[in-house]
Amino acid sequence: MRLLTHNMLSSNIKGVANGFPLRIEVEKVVEKQVDFNADFLKNMFAKIEWKALVDASRSMGYSELPGDANPSMLDSDDFLQKFHHALLELHLEEGALVCPETGRKFPVNKGIPNMLLHEDEV
């Protein structure tokens, strides 16, 4: 699971008002190189919840992202490279995603989050 995916995921348990962002529990992180595409990053930037990405990347052991970001930073190649790495190259291979309200853990195995709810959660 990439952090771009993490930035889209939310706990959808019945009664949970704000299931985003899911906290990350790390067992294993892998890095996979992806072609750098500045346009992709620039366009995706507007969609990203920045704080969630920063916290997520820190929990994955990467703390190079600035705490705050604004569109003017997209002109900086250094910034884009870090953004690229955090967003697309870090993968949570094993671990869990934790609902911020209920503490319910969604397991991540072989890089795949299992977001299925139990019957009493829907």
Partner: peptide, 10 residues
């Protein structure tokens, strides 16, 4: 992601 169509996790 493994998820149910009647409860999407997005």
């Amino acid at each position: 992601v493994v998820a149910d169509a009647v409860n999407l996790p997005y």
